[in-house]
Design a protein around this nucleic acid. Structure first.
Lengths: 227, 227
DNA sequence: AATTTCACCGATAGTACTATCGGTGAAAAT
DNA sequence: ATTTTCACCGATAGTACTATCGGTGAAATT
């Protein structure tokens, strides 16, 4: 058995980690409004005043939380991209581009929930983090799409690729939350939808990349044949 | 000139409306956390204690706000659907299905902002409203898609249609916010992207509506020809 | 062994907000 | 003309939280 005795700095670090964990849990369960030094300290098992031994104020704790969350998110994203690149063929790679983020989100739903809340909330200390995270996601996704062969050459196409990435990301988040809420039990089905959504958009990109007209000619849809 | 003299009930109603307006403005600018009876009453030009002449508490004001906002939103949605139905041909109708909601959102961005914030915030009094609004949007959109000919017969297809509607709605919101943030200056471009996104998804729906296999056979994409 | 350090404690002053109270004057009812 | 009603006011008790302070004991240093 290892020594259960801890040095002072080890004990301090442990308490600090407990505070961060407690804050994350409360943030997820009650939202930013439910967060207070009283609750966090109590949940971590120390006195309210001792909170200030570890953090200057709640803002600082949230900053640390955002940094760590961002790190975890980026690591998950990197891993997902690496994994998708290893897919055997183009088709699998395309599907994985959408399925893997879904799975990653559902593994740590609290990070997405917190991000979605903070994203448009001017009172949130995490807003900058949320906006930055969303922007990073958007760029990474645009890069993924570019890697699938849909590079954009001119200004308009670049903007379109960005819009597609943003739209798909929003859809990914929405479907992931729907899955977590129990509405869409099968993640693979959701991934199929996302794959199809992106195909449609990229088809537009491709069909008009050389022309200057709005050109919807080759994507006009007729209603499906009913059985 | 009409009589500027107001009856007591007219004056009271005016004050009530000022409170609601003030609350909406503060909610949009500072978020739910920035809302207090002090600020709202002051902004409406009355004493803090007089707030309670009009509302039992802040919750009640928010409930009223949600009711009125929901009413406005539903009216806008109804009008948009009516307008889209009047489009001359299928192509225009399809585009309008996506462009009109975008325009509607950008006309009253505060409602969407408030809704997006409250949607996943457990501490928000407006959460129920936001969830209900999102669900209504989803259903309406699914109905719109069905009206375009993409009816779903079995359970799986219905779920898929719902997922597509939810995904497209999320993308619509995201692009609208992107437009309001200045990233996507042209709403028509955004509408094109949404149209294309939905086409891709509906193509999937159509291609597999009679089969039981995942069947991506006819939607395999090859990278676009580079110039 | 003596001294210093410091993570943690309880107490508390300060801040912001909620919700109630009695008072006031003008509108409304009699 | 008199009385009643009531929208609004200022004052204030109560609540929840923040952030600081001096004190304490065990770990760390000397």
């Amino acid at each position: 058995m290892t020594d259960t005795r801890l040095t002072r700095s080890e004990a301090k670090d442990l308490t600090r980690r407990r505070l961060i964990r407690a804050a994350l849990a409360i943030l997820d369960e009650e939202g930013e409004a439910g967060l207070s030094t009283v609750k966090v300290a109590k949940a971590a098992g120390i006195a309210q005043s001792s909170f200030y031994v570890h953090f200057k104020d709640m803002q600082e704790l949230l900053r640390v939380l955002a940094d760590e969350g961002g790190e975890r998110l980026f690591e998950a994203m990197r891993a997902a991209r690496r994994k998708a690149r290893e897919a055997p063929d183009d088709l699998e790679r395309h599907r994985d581009t959408f399925r893997i983020p879904l799975v990653a989100i559902c593994r740590h739903p609290e990070l997405l929930r917190i991000q979605l809340r903070a994203r448009y909330d001017p009172s949130s200390s995490l807003r900058d983090f949320a906006v930055a995270t969303a922007a990073a996601h958007r760029e990474h996704h645009a890069a993924d799409l570019a890697a699938l062969g849909y590079t954009a050459d001119d200004e308009r196409d670049r903007r379109r690729l960005e819009m597609i990435a943003e739209g798909i990301n929003a859809a990914t988040n929405a479907l992931a939350m729907g899955h977590l809420e129990g509405r869409y039990p099968d993640l693979d089905e959701a991934a199929d939808i996302l794959t199809a959504l992106s195909r449609g958009a990229l088809r537009l990109l491709r069909s008009t990349s050389a022309k200057t007209t709005p050109a919807e000619a080759d994507v006009i849809s007729e209603p499906p044949a009913r059985s």
